[in-house]
Design a protein around this nucleic acid. Sequence first.
RNA 1: GGAGGGGUCGCAUAGUGGUCUAGUGCGCCCGCCUGCUAAGCGGGUUCCGGGGUAACUCGGUCGAGGGUUCAAAUCCCUCCCCCUCCGCCA
Length: 422
Amino acid sequence: MLSLQYIRENVDRVKRDVLLRNATAPIDRILQLDEERREVLQQVEALRARRNAASKAIGASKDAAGRDERIAEMRVVGDEINQLDARLKGVETELQAKLYEVPNILDPSVPRGPDETSNEVVAVVGSIPEFSFAPRPHWELGELVNGLDIERGAKMSGSRFYTLRGPLAKLQRALIQFMLDEHSKAGFTESYLPYMLSEASLYAAGQLPKFRDNLYRDAEEDYFFIPTAEVAFVNLYRDEIIPPGQLPMRFVGHTPCFRREKMSAGRDVRGIKRGHQFEKVEMFVYCEPEQSGEELEALLVRACSIPEKLGLPYRVLALCSGDIGFNSTKTFDLEIWAPGQGEWLEVSSASNCLDFQARRANIRYRTAADAPTAYPHMLNASGLALPRTVIAVMENYQREDGSIGVPEALQPYMGIDVIPAV
RNA sequence: GGAGGGGUCGCAUAGUGGUCUAGUGCGCCCGCCUGCUAAGCGGGUUCCGGGGUAACUCGGUCGAGGGUUCAAAUCCCUCCCCCUCCGCCA
Protein backbone atom coordinates (compact mmCIF):
# COMPACT_ATOMS: atom_id res chain seq x y z
CA MET A 1 0.00 0.00 0.00
CA LEU A 2 0.94 3.62 -0.33
CA SER A 3 1.61 5.74 2.74
CA LEU A 4 -1.02 8.23 3.77
CA GLN A 5 1.60 10.90 3.74
CA TYR A 6 2.52 10.09 0.16
CA ILE A 7 -1.10 10.19 -0.94
CA ARG A 8 -1.64 13.47 0.91
CA GLU A 9 1.37 15.07 -0.74
CA ASN A 10 0.93 13.60 -4.24
CA VAL A 11 -2.82 13.43 -4.75
CA ASP A 12 -2.65 14.34 -8.42
CA ARG A 13 -0.12 11.72 -9.34
CA VAL A 14 -1.85 8.99 -7.37
CA LYS A 15 -5.19 9.77 -9.00
CA ARG A 16 -3.63 9.98 -12.45
CA ASP A 17 -1.94 6.60 -12.09
CA VAL A 18 -5.17 4.98 -10.94
CA LEU A 19 -6.83 6.32 -14.09
CA LEU A 20 -3.96 5.15 -16.28
CA ARG A 21 -4.41 1.69 -14.84
CA ASN A 22 -8.04 1.72 -15.86
CA ALA A 23 -8.81 1.19 -12.17
CA THR A 24 -10.70 2.97 -9.44
CA ALA A 25 -9.63 3.85 -5.90
CA PRO A 26 -11.33 5.88 -3.18
CA ILE A 27 -8.67 8.57 -2.89
CA ASP A 28 -10.97 11.41 -1.86
CA ARG A 29 -12.61 9.30 0.82
CA ILE A 30 -9.17 8.36 2.12
CA LEU A 31 -8.13 11.99 2.47
CA GLN A 32 -11.36 12.76 4.25
CA LEU A 33 -10.93 9.83 6.67
CA ASP A 34 -7.34 10.79 7.29
CA GLU A 35 -8.37 14.24 8.43
CA GLU A 36 -11.15 12.89 10.57
CA ARG A 37 -8.80 10.40 12.16
CA ARG A 38 -6.31 13.02 13.20
CA GLU A 39 -9.01 15.25 14.59
CA VAL A 40 -10.56 12.52 16.74
CA LEU A 41 -7.14 11.23 17.73
CA GLN A 42 -6.17 14.58 19.18
CA GLN A 43 -9.35 14.76 21.21
CA VAL A 44 -9.06 11.27 22.62
CA GLU A 45 -5.37 11.62 23.41
CA ALA A 46 -5.95 14.87 25.28
CA LEU A 47 -8.58 13.14 27.40
CA ARG A 48 -6.31 10.20 28.04
CA ALA A 49 -3.50 12.48 29.14
CA ARG A 50 -5.91 14.08 31.60
CA ARG A 51 -7.05 10.76 32.94
CA ASN A 52 -3.53 9.43 33.30
CA ALA A 53 -2.53 12.45 35.35
CA ALA A 54 -5.64 12.22 37.53
CA SER A 55 -5.20 8.50 38.13
CA LYS A 56 -1.69 9.05 39.26
CA ALA A 57 -2.85 11.75 41.66
CA ILE A 58 -5.54 9.41 42.99
CA GLY A 59 -2.95 6.75 43.68
CA ALA A 60 -0.76 9.17 45.59
CA SER A 61 -3.59 10.92 47.43
CA LYS A 62 -4.37 10.44 51.10
CA ASP A 63 -7.35 12.76 51.11
CA ALA A 64 -10.35 10.42 50.91
CA ALA A 65 -12.95 13.05 50.01
CA GLY A 66 -10.93 14.63 47.19
CA ARG A 67 -10.15 11.16 45.98
CA ASP A 68 -13.78 10.15 45.60
CA GLU A 69 -14.52 13.37 43.79
CA ARG A 70 -11.73 12.76 41.30
CA ILE A 71 -12.82 9.19 40.74
CA ALA A 72 -16.32 10.36 39.92
CA GLU A 73 -14.89 12.93 37.52
CA MET A 74 -12.73 10.40 35.78
CA ARG A 75 -15.63 8.03 35.41
CA VAL A 76 -17.23 10.63 33.16
CA VAL A 77 -13.98 11.19 31.26
CA GLY A 78 -13.69 7.44 30.82
CA ASP A 79 -17.09 7.32 29.14
CA GLU A 80 -16.10 10.11 26.79
CA ILE A 81 -12.90 8.29 25.91
CA ASN A 82 -14.82 5.11 25.14
CA GLN A 83 -17.15 6.96 22.81
CA LEU A 84 -14.37 8.74 20.95
CA ASP A 85 -12.38 5.53 20.83
CA ALA A 86 -15.22 3.69 19.15
CA ARG A 87 -15.48 6.44 16.57
CA LEU A 88 -11.73 6.45 16.03
CA LYS A 89 -11.71 2.73 15.55
CA GLY A 90 -14.47 2.94 12.98
CA VAL A 91 -12.56 5.58 11.06
CA GLU A 92 -9.29 3.64 11.20
CA THR A 93 -10.90 0.40 10.08
CA GLU A 94 -12.45 2.05 7.06
CA LEU A 95 -9.27 3.95 6.30
CA GLN A 96 -7.22 0.76 6.35
CA ALA A 97 -9.70 -1.03 4.11
CA LYS A 98 -9.71 1.83 1.62
CA LEU A 99 -5.91 2.06 1.60
CA TYR A 100 -5.77 -1.63 0.71
CA GLU A 101 -7.72 -0.83 -2.46
CA VAL A 102 -5.22 1.68 -3.85
CA PRO A 103 -2.83 0.25 -6.45
CA ASN A 104 0.85 1.12 -6.60
CA ILE A 105 2.05 4.20 -8.44
CA LEU A 106 3.42 3.71 -11.95
CA ASP A 107 6.99 4.14 -12.99
CA PRO A 108 7.20 7.06 -15.45
CA SER A 109 8.65 4.74 -18.09
CA VAL A 110 5.56 2.52 -18.16
CA PRO A 111 3.85 2.72 -21.57
CA ARG A 112 0.36 4.12 -21.41
CA GLY A 113 -2.58 2.15 -22.68
CA PRO A 114 -5.85 0.60 -21.57
CA ASP A 115 -5.11 -3.13 -22.03
CA GLU A 116 -2.58 -5.72 -23.17
CA THR A 117 -2.75 -4.54 -26.78
CA SER A 118 -0.66 -1.54 -25.69
CA ASN A 119 2.19 -3.59 -24.19
CA GLU A 120 5.50 -2.76 -25.84
CA VAL A 121 7.81 -5.37 -27.28
CA VAL A 122 11.24 -4.28 -26.06
CA ALA A 123 13.29 -7.25 -27.31
CA VAL A 124 12.98 -10.34 -29.50
CA VAL A 125 15.80 -12.85 -29.00
CA GLY A 126 16.63 -16.04 -30.88
CA SER A 127 15.27 -17.20 -34.19
CA ILE A 128 11.93 -18.79 -34.70
CA PRO A 129 12.56 -22.36 -35.87
CA GLU A 130 11.63 -23.36 -39.40
CA PHE A 131 10.00 -26.73 -39.86
CA SER A 132 9.84 -28.83 -43.01
CA PHE A 133 6.57 -30.21 -41.68
CA ALA A 134 3.58 -28.75 -39.87
CA PRO A 135 4.69 -28.46 -36.22
CA ARG A 136 2.34 -30.15 -33.79
CA PRO A 137 0.85 -28.61 -30.67
CA HIS A 138 2.12 -30.06 -27.39
CA TRP A 139 -1.03 -32.02 -26.63
CA GLU A 140 -0.48 -34.07 -29.79
CA LEU A 141 3.22 -34.48 -29.08
CA GLY A 142 2.40 -35.47 -25.51
CA GLU A 143 0.36 -38.38 -26.77
CA LEU A 144 2.94 -39.39 -29.34
CA VAL A 145 5.62 -39.76 -26.66
CA ASN A 146 3.11 -41.25 -24.23
CA GLY A 147 3.94 -38.58 -21.63
CA LEU A 148 0.79 -36.52 -21.25
CA ASP A 149 -2.58 -37.74 -20.08
CA ILE A 150 -5.20 -35.07 -19.90
CA GLU A 151 -8.21 -37.37 -19.71
CA ARG A 152 -7.06 -39.22 -16.63
CA GLY A 153 -6.25 -35.92 -14.94
CA ALA A 154 -9.79 -34.76 -15.64
CA LYS A 155 -11.15 -38.06 -14.36
CA MET A 156 -9.37 -37.64 -11.04
CA SER A 157 -9.96 -33.95 -10.46
CA GLY A 158 -11.98 -32.35 -13.22
CA SER A 159 -11.09 -30.03 -16.03
CA ARG A 160 -7.77 -28.18 -16.05
CA PHE A 161 -5.93 -31.09 -14.43
CA TYR A 162 -3.61 -33.51 -16.20
CA THR A 163 -0.84 -35.94 -15.48
CA LEU A 164 2.64 -36.16 -16.89
CA ARG A 165 4.49 -39.44 -16.97
CA GLY A 166 7.74 -40.95 -18.06
CA PRO A 167 10.00 -38.65 -20.04
CA LEU A 168 7.73 -35.60 -19.83
CA ALA A 169 7.48 -35.86 -16.04
CA LYS A 170 11.27 -36.12 -16.02
CA LEU A 171 11.56 -33.20 -18.41
CA GLN A 172 9.59 -30.99 -16.03
CA ARG A 173 11.69 -32.12 -13.08
CA ALA A 174 14.88 -31.55 -15.06
CA LEU A 175 13.78 -28.03 -15.91
CA ILE A 176 13.03 -27.23 -12.27
CA GLN A 177 16.38 -28.63 -11.18
CA PHE A 178 18.22 -26.80 -13.95
CA MET A 179 16.61 -23.46 -13.14
CA LEU A 180 17.23 -23.77 -9.39
CA ASP A 181 20.86 -24.63 -10.10
CA GLU A 182 21.30 -21.70 -12.47
CA HIS A 183 19.84 -19.13 -10.08
CA SER A 184 21.64 -20.58 -7.08
CA LYS A 185 24.91 -20.25 -8.97
CA ALA A 186 24.05 -16.60 -9.52
CA GLY A 187 23.86 -16.06 -5.77
CA PHE A 188 20.18 -16.57 -5.06
CA THR A 189 19.49 -18.45 -1.84
CA GLU A 190 17.47 -21.58 -2.48
CA SER A 191 14.39 -21.79 -0.28
CA TYR A 192 11.77 -24.35 0.58
CA LEU A 193 8.49 -22.68 1.49
CA PRO A 194 5.06 -23.45 2.91
CA TYR A 195 2.45 -24.02 0.22
CA MET A 196 -0.36 -22.89 2.50
CA LEU A 197 -0.42 -19.52 4.22
CA SER A 198 -2.71 -17.72 6.63
CA GLU A 199 -5.22 -15.12 5.56
CA ALA A 200 -3.10 -12.38 7.13
CA SER A 201 -0.22 -13.42 4.90
CA LEU A 202 -2.35 -13.14 1.79
CA TYR A 203 -3.37 -9.62 2.81
CA ALA A 204 0.23 -8.65 3.45
CA ALA A 205 1.24 -9.75 -0.01
CA GLY A 206 -1.63 -7.92 -1.69
CA GLN A 207 -3.53 -11.00 -2.90
CA LEU A 208 -6.42 -10.16 -0.62
CA PRO A 209 -8.92 -8.64 -0.63
CA LYS A 210 -8.88 -8.19 -4.39
CA PHE A 211 -8.16 -11.71 -5.63
CA ARG A 212 -10.17 -13.80 -3.20
CA ASP A 213 -12.05 -15.37 -6.12
CA ASN A 214 -8.83 -16.72 -7.52
CA LEU A 215 -7.60 -18.52 -4.40
CA TYR A 216 -8.18 -21.97 -2.96
CA ARG A 217 -8.54 -22.31 0.76
CA ASP A 218 -9.11 -24.87 3.47
CA ALA A 219 -12.75 -24.92 4.50
CA GLU A 220 -12.08 -25.37 8.21
CA GLU A 221 -8.76 -23.80 8.95
CA ASP A 222 -6.98 -20.58 8.19
CA TYR A 223 -5.00 -21.89 5.23
CA PHE A 224 -4.86 -20.48 1.73
CA PHE A 225 -3.02 -22.35 -1.01
CA ILE A 226 -0.37 -20.12 -2.55
CA PRO A 227 -1.09 -18.85 -6.07
CA THR A 228 2.64 -18.09 -6.39
CA ALA A 229 5.75 -18.38 -4.21
CA GLU A 230 5.90 -14.59 -4.23
CA VAL A 231 3.26 -14.60 -1.51
CA ALA A 232 5.47 -16.70 0.75
CA PHE A 233 8.61 -14.68 0.01
CA VAL A 234 6.86 -11.44 0.93
CA ASN A 235 5.82 -12.93 4.24
CA LEU A 236 9.26 -14.36 5.08
CA TYR A 237 10.14 -11.11 6.82
CA ARG A 238 6.68 -9.88 7.75
CA ASP A 239 6.64 -7.72 10.89
CA GLU A 240 10.43 -7.70 11.09
CA ILE A 241 13.13 -5.08 11.05
CA ILE A 242 16.01 -6.29 8.88
CA PRO A 243 19.34 -5.44 10.55
CA PRO A 244 22.00 -3.33 8.82
CA GLY A 245 24.19 -4.94 6.18
CA GLN A 246 21.82 -7.68 5.02
CA LEU A 247 20.35 -6.08 1.91
CA PRO A 248 20.16 -7.00 -0.85
CA MET A 249 18.70 -10.45 -0.09
CA ARG A 250 18.00 -12.64 -3.11
CA PHE A 251 16.00 -15.84 -2.95
CA VAL A 252 14.88 -18.56 -5.32
CA GLY A 253 12.43 -21.36 -4.70
CA HIS A 254 10.32 -23.92 -6.47
CA THR A 255 6.71 -24.37 -5.41
CA PRO A 256 3.48 -25.56 -6.87
CA CYS A 257 0.94 -22.79 -7.45
CA PHE A 258 -2.81 -23.06 -7.12
CA ARG A 259 -5.27 -20.84 -8.95
CA ARG A 260 -9.00 -21.05 -9.48
CA GLU A 261 -8.72 -19.27 -12.85
CA LYS A 262 -12.33 -18.19 -12.58
CA MET A 263 -11.49 -15.00 -14.36
CA SER A 264 -10.01 -16.97 -17.24
CA ALA A 265 -12.81 -19.50 -17.55
CA GLY A 266 -13.08 -20.60 -21.14
CA ARG A 267 -9.62 -19.35 -22.12
CA ASP A 268 -6.84 -21.70 -23.13
CA VAL A 269 -8.92 -24.80 -22.67
CA ARG A 270 -6.75 -26.87 -24.96
CA GLY A 271 -3.60 -28.52 -23.62
CA ILE A 272 -1.83 -27.81 -20.34
CA LYS A 273 -1.03 -24.13 -20.67
CA ARG A 274 -3.44 -23.05 -17.97
CA GLY A 275 -4.27 -25.38 -15.08
CA HIS A 276 -5.47 -25.06 -11.51
CA GLN A 277 -2.16 -26.44 -10.29
CA PHE A 278 1.25 -25.80 -11.79
CA GLU A 279 4.92 -25.66 -10.83
CA LYS A 280 6.98 -22.51 -10.83
CA VAL A 281 10.51 -21.44 -9.95
CA GLU A 282 10.36 -17.98 -8.44
CA MET A 283 13.02 -15.38 -7.66
CA PHE A 284 12.55 -12.72 -5.05
CA VAL A 285 14.65 -9.73 -3.95
CA TYR A 286 14.65 -7.45 -0.92
CA CYS A 287 16.83 -4.37 -1.49
CA GLU A 288 17.40 -0.75 -0.59
CA PRO A 289 15.26 1.75 -2.51
CA GLU A 290 18.15 3.10 -4.56
CA GLN A 291 18.90 -0.37 -5.89
CA SER A 292 15.51 -1.56 -7.07
CA GLY A 293 15.84 -0.19 -10.61
CA GLU A 294 19.00 -2.19 -11.25
CA GLU A 295 17.66 -5.21 -9.43
CA LEU A 296 14.68 -5.30 -11.79
CA GLU A 297 17.02 -5.25 -14.80
CA ALA A 298 19.12 -7.98 -13.22
CA LEU A 299 16.07 -10.16 -12.56
CA LEU A 300 15.00 -9.76 -16.15
CA VAL A 301 18.46 -10.75 -17.41
CA ARG A 302 18.42 -13.72 -15.03
CA ALA A 303 15.02 -14.89 -16.30
CA CYS A 304 16.09 -14.44 -19.93
CA SER A 305 19.18 -16.55 -19.36
CA ILE A 306 16.97 -19.64 -19.07
CA PRO A 307 15.43 -19.61 -22.59
CA GLU A 308 18.84 -18.58 -23.88
CA LYS A 309 20.55 -21.60 -22.36
CA LEU A 310 17.70 -23.80 -23.54
CA GLY A 311 17.89 -22.38 -27.05
CA LEU A 312 14.31 -21.15 -27.06
CA PRO A 313 13.21 -18.01 -28.93
CA TYR A 314 11.65 -15.41 -26.66
CA ARG A 315 10.60 -11.82 -26.44
CA VAL A 316 10.30 -9.26 -23.67
CA LEU A 317 7.32 -6.99 -23.16
CA ALA A 318 7.08 -3.84 -21.09
CA LEU A 319 3.58 -4.03 -19.68
CA CYS A 320 1.45 -0.96 -20.21
CA SER A 321 -0.39 0.94 -17.51
CA GLY A 322 -3.66 -0.89 -18.11
CA ASP A 323 -2.14 -4.37 -17.91
CA ILE A 324 0.38 -4.03 -15.08
CA GLY A 325 -0.30 -5.77 -11.76
CA PHE A 326 -1.84 -4.07 -8.73
CA ASN A 327 1.35 -4.24 -6.61
CA SER A 328 3.82 -3.36 -9.32
CA THR A 329 5.28 -0.06 -10.44
CA LYS A 330 6.92 -1.60 -13.49
CA THR A 331 6.70 -5.05 -15.04
CA PHE A 332 8.41 -6.93 -17.85
CA ASP A 333 6.87 -10.11 -19.21
CA LEU A 334 8.96 -12.79 -20.84
CA GLU A 335 7.28 -14.88 -23.51
CA ILE A 336 8.62 -17.93 -25.32
CA TRP A 337 7.52 -18.83 -28.82
CA ALA A 338 5.48 -22.02 -29.08
CA PRO A 339 5.46 -23.00 -32.76
CA GLY A 340 2.96 -25.84 -32.40
CA GLN A 341 0.29 -23.59 -31.01
CA GLY A 342 1.64 -20.63 -32.94
CA GLU A 343 1.62 -18.26 -29.99
CA TRP A 344 3.86 -16.58 -27.43
CA LEU A 345 3.66 -18.22 -24.01
CA GLU A 346 4.06 -16.06 -20.92
CA VAL A 347 6.63 -17.79 -18.73
CA SER A 348 7.79 -14.96 -16.49
CA SER A 349 6.75 -11.66 -15.09
CA ALA A 350 9.41 -9.49 -13.48
CA SER A 351 8.07 -6.73 -11.25
CA ASN A 352 9.39 -3.97 -9.07
CA CYS A 353 6.91 -3.33 -6.27
CA LEU A 354 8.94 -0.59 -4.57
CA ASP A 355 7.98 -0.36 -0.89
CA PHE A 356 4.33 -1.19 -1.62
CA GLN A 357 4.46 -4.72 -0.23
CA ALA A 358 6.93 -3.87 2.53
CA ARG A 359 4.53 -1.32 3.90
CA ARG A 360 1.64 -3.70 3.73
CA ALA A 361 3.66 -6.50 5.30
CA ASN A 362 5.26 -4.17 7.85
CA ILE A 363 8.81 -5.03 6.82
CA ARG A 364 11.49 -2.46 7.58
CA TYR A 365 15.26 -2.29 7.55
CA ARG A 366 18.06 -0.15 8.95
CA THR A 367 21.16 1.13 7.25
CA ALA A 368 22.97 1.45 10.59
CA ALA A 369 22.30 0.38 14.17
CA ASP A 370 21.30 3.90 15.19
CA ALA A 371 19.56 4.81 11.93
CA PRO A 372 15.80 5.14 11.72
CA THR A 373 13.79 2.36 10.10
CA ALA A 374 12.90 2.51 6.41
CA TYR A 375 10.90 0.35 4.03
CA PRO A 376 12.91 -1.91 1.70
CA HIS A 377 11.95 -2.39 -1.92
CA MET A 378 10.75 -5.79 -3.02
CA LEU A 379 10.89 -7.40 -6.45
CA ASN A 380 9.83 -10.71 -7.91
CA ALA A 381 10.31 -12.60 -11.15
CA SER A 382 9.41 -16.08 -12.26
CA GLY A 383 12.40 -18.00 -13.34
CA LEU A 384 10.44 -19.67 -15.04
CA ALA A 385 6.91 -21.02 -14.97
CA LEU A 386 6.18 -24.67 -15.67
CA PRO A 387 4.63 -26.41 -17.49
CA ARG A 388 4.75 -23.67 -20.10
CA THR A 389 8.48 -24.09 -20.41
CA VAL A 390 7.86 -27.81 -20.92
CA ILE A 391 5.45 -26.89 -23.72
CA ALA A 392 8.06 -24.59 -25.25
CA VAL A 393 10.74 -27.28 -25.22
CA MET A 394 8.35 -29.85 -26.70
CA GLU A 395 7.10 -27.65 -29.50
CA ASN A 396 10.46 -26.11 -30.43
CA TYR A 397 12.47 -29.34 -30.30
CA GLN A 398 9.91 -31.58 -31.99
CA ARG A 399 10.81 -33.72 -34.99
CA GLU A 400 8.68 -34.94 -37.81
CA ASP A 401 8.16 -38.41 -36.30
CA GLY A 402 6.86 -36.91 -33.08
CA SER A 403 10.02 -37.42 -31.04
CA ILE A 404 11.39 -34.50 -29.07
CA GLY A 405 15.03 -33.47 -28.81
CA VAL A 406 16.39 -32.68 -25.35
CA PRO A 407 18.15 -29.29 -25.13
CA GLU A 408 21.83 -29.68 -24.45
CA ALA A 409 21.62 -27.89 -21.10
CA LEU A 410 19.09 -30.47 -19.89
CA GLN A 411 20.85 -33.59 -21.13
CA PRO A 412 22.94 -34.00 -17.96
CA TYR A 413 19.71 -33.82 -15.96
CA MET A 414 17.78 -36.27 -18.14
CA GLY A 415 20.51 -38.67 -19.17
CA ILE A 416 19.07 -38.84 -22.71
CA ASP A 417 19.23 -36.59 -25.75
CA VAL A 418 15.88 -37.41 -27.28
CA ILE A 419 12.43 -38.31 -26.07
CA PRO A 420 11.30 -40.97 -28.51
CA ALA A 421 7.87 -41.31 -30.05
CA VAL A 422 6.32 -44.65 -29.13
C1' G B 1 -5.98 -35.76 19.91
C1' G B 2 -4.79 -35.77 25.73
C1' A B 3 -1.98 -33.58 30.03
C1' G B 4 1.23 -29.87 31.75
C1' G B 5 4.56 -25.45 31.36
C1' G B 6 5.57 -20.88 29.02
C1' G B 7 5.33 -15.91 25.81
C1' U B 8 7.91 -8.89 29.61
C1' C B 9 12.15 -3.09 26.19
C1' G B 10 18.58 -7.15 21.29
C1' C B 11 19.53 -11.59 24.93
C1' A B 12 18.61 -13.34 30.05
C1' U B 13 15.46 -12.30 33.94
C1' A B 14 12.29 -9.40 38.12
C1' G B 15 7.59 -7.80 38.60
C1' U B 16 -0.12 -10.76 41.67
C1' G B 17 -4.16 -3.43 41.02
C1' G B 18 -1.47 2.89 42.06
C1' U B 19 6.39 5.59 43.31
C1' C B 20 6.16 0.79 36.90
C1' U B 21 8.25 7.05 34.24
C1' A B 22 8.53 -1.52 33.44
C1' G B 23 13.68 -2.83 37.63
C1' U B 24 18.35 -5.74 37.27
C1' G B 25 22.34 -8.33 34.56
C1' C B 26 24.60 -9.07 29.78
C1' G B 27 25.37 -6.98 25.03
C1' C B 28 25.70 -2.44 22.33
C1' C B 29 26.48 3.19 21.85
C1' C B 30 28.42 7.97 23.92
C1' G B 31 31.43 10.29 27.59
C1' C B 32 34.95 10.37 31.91
C1' C B 33 39.22 8.10 33.88
C1' U B 34 43.57 5.85 31.63
C1' G B 35 51.22 4.52 28.86
C1' C B 36 47.84 0.52 26.00
C1' U B 37 44.02 -2.98 27.12
C1' A B 38 40.83 -4.52 30.83
C1' A B 39 38.40 -2.93 35.08
C1' G B 40 35.88 1.28 37.21
C1' C B 41 32.51 5.65 36.97
C1' G B 42 28.40 8.54 34.50
C1' G B 43 24.75 8.63 30.71
C1' G B 44 22.05 6.31 26.72
C1' U B 45 19.69 1.90 24.32
C1' U B 46 11.61 -1.10 21.98
C1' C B 47 8.56 0.17 18.23
C1' C B 48 4.28 2.98 16.24
C1' G B 49 1.39 7.34 15.93
C1' G B 50 -0.38 12.74 16.98
C1' G B 51 1.15 18.04 17.68
C1' G B 52 5.42 21.41 16.87
C1' U B 53 10.22 25.09 12.29
C1' A B 54 12.65 23.25 16.53
C1' A B 55 14.06 22.17 21.61
C1' C B 56 10.33 19.23 22.89
C1' U B 57 5.69 17.21 24.08
C1' C B 58 1.35 13.89 24.25
C1' G B 59 -0.76 8.99 23.39
C1' G B 60 -0.29 3.83 22.54
C1' U B 61 2.87 -0.54 22.97
C1' C B 62 4.62 -6.38 28.37
C1' G B 63 2.09 -12.73 22.23
C1' A B 64 -3.13 -10.79 19.82
C1' G B 65 -8.06 -9.10 20.66
C1' G B 66 -11.99 -8.03 24.04
C1' G B 67 -13.71 -7.04 29.26
C1' U B 68 -13.62 -5.21 34.63
C1' U B 69 -11.61 -0.51 37.04
C1' C B 70 -10.73 6.34 38.32
C1' A B 71 -6.24 3.25 37.29
C1' A B 72 -4.15 -3.35 34.27
C1' A B 73 2.33 -6.39 32.71
C1' U B 74 -0.69 -7.68 37.10
C1' C B 75 -7.77 -9.60 37.55
C1' C B 76 -11.58 -12.02 33.86
C1' C B 77 -12.85 -14.01 28.73
C1' U B 78 -11.52 -15.60 23.68
C1' C B 79 -7.68 -16.68 20.38
C1' C B 80 -2.45 -17.43 18.50
C1' C B 81 2.44 -19.27 19.05
C1' C B 82 6.49 -22.02 21.55
C1' C B 83 8.29 -26.02 24.88
C1' U B 84 7.83 -30.97 27.64
C1' C B 85 5.43 -35.73 28.16
C1' C B 86 1.72 -39.28 26.17
C1' G B 87 -0.96 -41.04 21.76
C1' C B 88 -0.88 -41.24 16.37
C1' C B 89 2.01 -40.73 12.07
C1' A B 90 5.29 -39.79 6.39
